[in-house]
Nucleic acid binder design. Structure first.
Lengths: 259, 259
DNA sequence: ATTTTTATGTTATGATAATCACAAAATGAT
DNA sequence: ATCATTTTGTGATTATCATAACATAAAAAT
């Protein structure tokens, strides 16, 4: 992975959280010259992620570029997949009803759910990811519940045994769960083992289990198994999903939405 | 109605819509000098409605100040107190050592501790306030622990029974605790009863108990009692503290720092 | 291994913004 | 109306930012 990409990713993360940051600060945070930051921001500007006004850089909360497999790739042309994730997120968000209690898992796609949540509805949302929390804070209609613990930088989530207890004490209409792999025999998987108890707890606490993931995750197996496919009620993914999967999903009695 | 109040209300409305505006533009829109706008923004800043970085003013979508009776009324003497709070926060932050594990309570003063924490030291920090979390995330040397739960907008904190368990499982060198009232006979108090179990838990989990509060809170009694004064090891406050309190604190064997 | 391309840092220069002190104007109370 | 207080404006000073041109370093390609 090249240095520039890594830096730009950090830059976006910082902007997402803070909303607006001065170039000077970004420069010292990322240990590069201000000139480099300016050049990076030029790229973000072209991708509609941030706007640079005299003195400060402002993050655009409505941006459609989505993190893909742990990293943004703005230099290549993988923007298509990012648009897909935003579409998936927007659609999933539309499944939410007035006064719903929902749980939002970690991940880049689920982040787009949080960002696209209706602002005119009264909602309760449980989450444990910092990126999700930041998106939710923009939404005045949301009553927030947050499961804390120890911070894991790679997934931007908090987690602890007490958190699991907290989640188990919550009841929700819908859970939006993410996955790094979906396999016919081997079930639904994620990357880190610490995610497993959390994912199992949120599945247990919700009436409707909605899996949100782009089509590239199908047929993929990841190290940490957290549930069988048939526990899922609804899948939201993009329309690049193959026919055999569509049949398989229908046979399993799962409602499928492709966007 | 006051001219100034009207202008500030218009200003907030403009910011709400645009998100970020330059002072120059605001000045011409409202037909007053830039200096006046700057002074108005000083007030908004103290009320967490907007932040002014070199060049532009950014609206804070998560601001907690609510319009009442059709307009904002922000004209207190918040300004003076704010500088004091930052001084207290900066001093308290200087008490932190390399590799310390610290707990930071909610509050505007404790937020200033988080903001002034050294960036060159490796630290672990436990908190449960969103404002504190935002400040900590700027600091790359900080390992974060977060106690979640249900969100309380008035204190910007999360809280739940499972959180208390989580806190009880943590051990720290220092806790920085805030208070809304400190009274000779009636002890240390806060406003909301839900804060009490949290405050008691963080006191229990720390070696050193450091009370940070401005001098206006002394002789004040608030509804929710959480500990006797003599449980405190160190008090950090401003130098407006009266002589009888200095004597009292000394007699109680508490180390006092006034800034 | 050498060339070419790309990425980053440095410097200088002009533009813009922030700050301060003081003056002017508006407001409010007696 | 008069005086005190608050609010606003002005200009000079200082600090910060943007841009471009150039130099250097690192990667990629041949």
């Amino acid at each position: 992975m090249n240095k520039k990409t890594t830096r730009i990713n950090k830059l976006i993360d910082i902007l997402k959280i803070r909303g607006f940051v001065s170039i000077k600060e970004l420069s010292s945070m990322l240990n590069v010259s201000e000139m480099t930051i300016r050049r990076d921001l030029e790229i973000l500007k072209n991708n509609d992620i941030a706007e640079n006004i005299y003195g400060t850089t402002v993050y655009n909360p409505a941006h459609t570029v989505v993190k893909n497999e742990d990293e943004y790739n703005l230099l290549g042309e993988v923007k298509k997949k990012n648009a897909q994730k935003d579409d998936i997120g927007r659609f999933a968000a539309s499944l939410v009803d007035e006064d719903d209690i929902i749980i939002i898992d970690t991940g880049s796609t689920t982040e787009r759910i949080a960002a696209n949540l209706p602002t005119d509805k009264s909602l309760s949302v449980l989450c444990y990811g910092v990126n999700i929390l930041m998106e939710l804070r923009r939404n005045p209609g949301v009553k927030m519940l947050f499961a804390g613990g120890f911070y894991h930088a790679n997934t931007q989530m908090f987690e602890s045994p007490e958190s699991i207890d907290f989640i188990k004490g919550v009841r929700a209409q819908k859970v939006f769960i993410s996955a790094a792999g979906v396999h016919r025999q081997l079930g639904v998987t994620c990357v880190n083992s610490y995610e497993v108890p959390v994912k199992r707890a949120i599945l247990q606490s919700s009436v409707q289990k909605i899996l949100v993931t782009d089509s590239s995750k199908f047929d993929v197996v990841r190290p940490a198994f957290f549930c069988e496919l048939d526990r899922i009620d609804i899948i939201v993914t993009d329309n690049a999903l193959g026919d055999e999967w569509r049949r398989l999903i229908a046979e399993a009695g799962i409602k499928l939405y492709t966007v």
